[in-house]
């Protein structure tokens, strides 16, 4: 099993059960993925609770970081939706922080990366999608359906435009989940491959071992890139959430 771990770049996405747990016949065992998610929540809440334990008008370092994150996401929400969109700020902030935290924890070797699991990203994307639909109907009633009717087009075009709008709307959770999933999955595979090349070449114990420097350098470069991707994908997810929520606030475009 150890040797297989070393040569299979997919093995890192395999979840190991840590505690067996069943609720109503459903297998909800605590796995390495659950551990990663719980750790992320614990670390994030730990840092943030310390940061805001004694809030000061002139902030300390940790409080500055918390405020930076707050302003960053708050500005994204305000710029995309407007001031009324701030009621979804905790939602967007939670999504951003959870995805960012999971992505970053995944950068530490031997930790699971739940955002490289399609079911996790799909669940988050569907949550966003359903939130948009439910809030859209609550806020606008039936006129939320105007979302599918672009204004100002000559009426015969509607036979083409309305189906297109509907398709593009319903494809959103798919693209939203696959973008995050694919980016994190691919990044981890590439990293693993370069590290594997390096160890394999070093294991040859011949002159060829010298060229291990190339995959090693690439692994370092990709590690840096993956940190960027970890942040960027979380940010993209948050921005797109805002963009989709904006439709619920302003359905007629």
């Amino acid at each position: 099993m150890i040797s297989q771990m070393a040569i299979d770049p997919m093995h890192q996405f395999q979840l190991d059960k840590l505690i067996d747990l069943k609720i109503g016949g459903l297998d909800v065992s605590f796995s390495t993925s659950s551990l990663a998610m719980m750790l992320v929540v614990a670390i994030l809440l730990g840092i943030l609770l310390i940061a805001v334990s004694k809030p000061k008008v002139v902030p300390g370092k940790l409080q500055s970081v918390a405020e930076l994150g707050y302003e960053f996401i708050a500005n994204t929400v305000r710029d995309t939706i407007g001031e009324e969109g701030m009621k979804f700020f905790p939602f967007v902030f939670t999504l951003f922080l959870l995805i960012f935290g999971i992505n970053m924890l995944g950068m530490i070797p031997y930790f699971e990366t739940p955002t490289a699991q399609i079911v996790v990203t799909a669940a988050l994307a569907i949550l966003v999608f359903l939130t948009v639909i439910v809030y859209g109907f609550i806020k606008n009633g039936v006129s939320f359906l105007k979302l599918f009717v672009p204004s100002g087009a000559p009426w015969p075009l509607y036979f083409l435009l309305i189906p297109l709008e509907i398709i593009s709307f319903f494809v959103r959770p798919v693209t939203l989940s696959l973008r995050l999933f694919g980016n994190i999955l691919a990044g981890h595979i590439v990293l693993k491959l370069f590290v594997m090349f390096t160890t394999t070449l070093l294991g040859l114990a011949s002159m060829l071992s010298v060229i291990a420097i190339f995959p090693f350098t690439a692994a370092i470069a990709f590690t840096a890139l993956e940190f960027l991707v970890a942040f960027l994908q979380a940010y993209i997810f948050a921005v797109l959430t805002c963009v989709y929520l904006n439709d619920a606030f302003h359905p007629s475009h």
């Binding site: 979840l15 747990l21 609720i23 459903l26 297998d27 909800v28 065992s29 605590f30 796995s31 993925s33 659950s34 998610m37 719980m38 992320v40 929540v41 994030l44 809440l45 905790p90 939602f91 939670t94 922080l97 959870l98 739940p114 699991q117 079911v119 996790v120 669940a123 988050l124 949550l127």
Partner: peptide
């Protein structure tokens, strides 16, 4: 693994939220 992942994701998301 889906049920387990969804279950713990829900817990993580709700607690964090």
């Amino acid at each position: 693994t889906f049920a387990s992942q969804l279950f713990w994701l829900a817990i993580a998301f709700i607690v964090l939220y």
